[in-house]
Every structure is written in C-alpha cells, then in structure tokens.
C-alpha cells in the first residue's frame, strides 16, 4: 500500500467523524468564528495550497497531524517501511527544511544547487562511467557502495507532502545525497551504522525525523551493537556532525573523480572508526 492511499484512507475516515461532530457546532454565534480566526488563519480541514509540483499531495493540517503520528508509529514498529519513514520526515520537517534552505541560501554552492536544482539519478550520475574511475576515487567508491547494497539512485521515494515547491526540492536533494554520506563517512548500512549517520545528520540539519530515529532507533539494537554505537559512533558523530561543512551545500556530482581522502579533508570529516 502506498503512502498516498494510507493517508487518504486514514485521514478521510477521521475527517468524516470530525465533520459529523462539528455539525452540532454549526450554529455558533458570530463572534465565536471571529475568535477562532485569531488563532487559526484557515480551516484545519482544507489543504492550504493547491498542487505545487509533480507528485505533490496537498493535505490539510489535520491530515498532516494524523499522517505524522501514524507514520511515526509505523516507522518505529517497522523501520524497513521506507515510505513511512519518508512520510514522517516530510510531515514534520517544514520549519526545519526552511532552515536548511536558508543555510543553503547563505552559501554560494548551496545557492547554485537551489538555482539549478540538479537531480541525482542513475542517468545523471552515469554510473557506468563512474565504474571506470580508479579505485579510491569518490565516484568509484560510491558505485561500489551502490552495487554492494544492490540499490540505485532511482529507488528513492519521491516527495509528496511538503507544501512548498522549493522545500520539496530540498527534501528530495537531502534524500538523494544520502548515499554519498556513506561513502564519505565509511559507515556501513547496518542498523547501528544508520543510527550513527542519523546522529551525524541531526547535528548537521536539525531535522526532527533524524532526531526521532537517533533517539528511538537504539531500542532495537543488540547489546554488542549498542556498545559500538556508544563507544565509537556517537562520539564520532558529535565531533564531526557539527564541525564539518554543511553537506547540503556540496555539489557531490562534481567531486566524483577526486580521492575520498581529499573530499573528507575538504569537508572536514574524518572517516568513522571501524571496529
């Protein structure tokens, strides 16, 4: 079931019941409505926008809350539900996405990314060409990672619920560049590796979805993984997450032929200690 149908179903059911209840209130006095407008500029039952971009699903504030709570529970129960993790990030991230966008606006590279809106697909990245690069270059290690994991840049969930065309792009970019982070940090795609990366991202971006995962994720670890996380990964994330350059301002596409160490040096990130 896609995120879209889930939302529509849950939200519509709830909305129906709320409408039924609010019928009783339709005869409220005029000043009541006036008071209400003080605090909510628009109805919580109507989407604040029309369709803004390809794939955009405009949802009302109420649907948004339901989706956020629903996806949080689903994602916690089953972290493999990528669509739910994605929906959680989108529904809760508005303010934080705007913050990241502002950080990008302050940086010449970030501005260039926002202006040109590059997309990362297997086509745009020319994966075959990257496979020809010498070992140790960023591009070569990046495809090696993709091949090992048997993933492709095209398998990312598109953005649906962000009510701003530009912020939807920021979210999209954030998702599309995630794989580069693994290459940069050397963190494995294990549960504790992902959690370490979430800590790193949290310090970089302040996205609430990454916070949730970094706090609640460890509940599902073995004691061995947990001690690795606490002794090595988190201290590493704390050190480099805040001191390194904001990775959202990196035009990764242009760094493919450079040695990984050089990229790490330039961005101020030391690879995570491997145990």
């Amino acid at each position: 079931m896609s995120a879209r149908t889930i939302t529509a179903a849950t939200a519509n059911a709830t909305i129906a019941s709320i409408r039924a209840r609010s019928l009783a209130l339709t005869r409220r006095p005029a000043h009541w409505t006036r008071c209400a407008t003080l605090f909510t500029c628009r109805s919580p039952l109507e989407p604040p926008t029309g369709k803004l971009y390809e794939g955009h699903i405009p949802i009302s504030p109420l649907q948004r809350s339901i989706l956020a709570v629903g996806s949080a529970f689903t994602a916690l129960a089953n972290p493999l539900r990528g669509d739910m993790v994605a929906a959680l990030g989108e529904t809760t991230g508005g303010m934080f996405l705007a913050r990241i966008r502002d950080q990008m606006l302050l940086d010449p590279e970030g501005r260039r990314i926002l202006r040109e809106r590059p997309k990362i697909t297997s086509e745009s990245m020319q994966l075959d060409a990257l496979r020809q690069l010498p070992d140790g270059t960023f591009g070569r290690e990046y495809v090696r990672f993709l091949d090992d994991q048997q993933v492709s840049p095209d398998t990312r969930e598109p953005v649906h619920f962000v009510d701003s065309e530009e912020l939807a792009y920021v979210m999209q970019r954030y998702r599309e560049t995630h794989d580069f982070y693994h290459t940069l940090t050397g963190l494995p795609v294990t549960v504790d590796g992902e959690i370490a990366l979430k800590w790193f991202e949290m310090l970089q971006t302040g996205l609430p979805m990454t916070m949730l995962s970094s706090f609640f994720g460890p509940l599902r670890l073995t004691s061995e993984e947990r001690s690795r996380l606490h002794e090595y990964y988190i201290p590493w994330a704390l050190e480099y997450g805040s001191s390194s350059k904001l990775l959202m301002n990196v035009r990764w596409e242009e760094w493919m032929d450079r040695p990984v160490e050089e990229v790490q040096r330039e961005l101020g990130v030391q690879p995570c200690p491997q145990v």
């Binding site: 500029c41 628009r42 109507e46 989407p47 604040p48 926008t49 029309g50 369709k51 803004l52 606006l105 501005r111 202006r115 009510d163 701003s164 065309e165 530009e166």
Partner: peptide, 20 residues
C-alpha cells in the same frame, strides 16, 4: 539577478497558497 531569482521563487510559492 540574485534578487530577481529569489523574487521569482517566492512568487511561484505564493501562487499556490490559498490565502484569504
């Protein structure tokens, strides 16, 4: 040019928003 670019992005965003 920087200001015009940002203004165009802002206008595009505003277009979609249903404001009273």
């Amino acid at each position: 040019s920087e200001i015009e670019w940002r203004a165009s992005v802002q206008d595009a965003e505003k277009g979609g928003i249903n404001r009273g």
